[in-house]
């Protein structure tokens, strides 16, 4: 398009591997930048962890303990106190998705505006749902597919596959919609663009981004917790 509208996922380079074209896109580059930032932060926290006291003395320790405790209580209120260790996984997902959504603020393309990223995240949730279902519920996991009547088995299976599709499309659609609207606004003449993009960034990147991150993590927890029998949660 020659109207200046640009929100596409640019291909930076193309490699050939075993006869298949591997495209190195904006999404991959931005994902790696976010991963580098998060891993660096994790290493810094790990080094500082040795100096942490039982009673917090620094603001940094207070901050780290506050976010870890918030995530743990969030997980245990959704999935039961026994599955608090899922906080380790969901904290990573939460941080990655939040940083991805906020990445649009720095005029990069948000990696979550690509169905590949959100699809991969939703696929891990899909694997976790069924892994935890088989591990905890055992026989009754398979029996649940025949309920309320065995005749509904195909519909139950389709609804299981609809879960990751709706999870990934929700995040993808929200962020891509925001990206396209921002692209449309940026392609307007210059005199319209005073101040308006800032307000739109606050809504589409900060508000919608944070809300969709929260909802993605919370729905993942709810879906995984749904497959765990009620009596095993405490």
């Amino acid at each position: 398009m020659d109207s200046g509208l640009d929100f596409n996922n640019h291909i930076i380079a193309t490699f050939k591997l075993f006869g298949i074209d591997i495209r190195f896109t904006d999404t991959i580059l931005n994902t790696w930048i976010i991963m580098a930032v998060l891993i660096l932060f994790a290493i810094v926290v790990r080094i500082k962890l040795n100096k942490f006291k039982d009673v917090p003395e620094t603001g940094f320790q207070n901050f780290i303990e506050a976010i870890v405790e918030a995530m743990d209580s969030f997980v245990s209120s959704n999935m039961g106190i026994k599955y608090k260790y899922f906080g380790n996984w969901f904290f990573g997902v939460f941080a990655f998705v939040l940083f991805s959504n906020l990445f649009g603020l720095l005029s990069f393309r948000a990696p979550t505006a690509d169905l590949a990223t959100t699809g991969a995240l939703a696929f891990t949730t899909f694997i976790l749902i069924h892994f935890m279902g088989i591990m905890t519920a055992k026989g009754s996991y398979f029996k649940a597919y025949l309920e309320p009547v065995p005749f509904l088995l195909p519909i139950n299976i389709i609804s299981e596959f609809a879960t990751p599709v709706s999870l990934s499309f929700r995040l993808f659609g929200n962020i891509l919609g925001g990206t396209i609207i921002m692209g449309l606004v940026y392609s307007l003449p210059a005199y319209v663009k005073v101040g308006i993009p800032a307000a739109l960034h606050v809504y589409f990147d900060v508000f919608a981004g944070a809300l969709q991150t929260f909802i993605f993590v919370m729905l993942s927890m709810a879906f995984i917790g749904d497959k765990i029998p009620e009596e095993m949660k405490n």
Binding site: F169, R170, G173, G177, L211, F214, I215, M218, L219, A222
Partner: peptide, 15 residues
């Protein structure tokens, strides 16, 4: 928020 997010799904499909 959870209910609102689930209600939003069909709209996102349309989008």
């Amino acid at each position: 928020l959870l209910g609102a997010a689930v209600a939003e799904t069909t709209g996102i499909y349309g989008l």
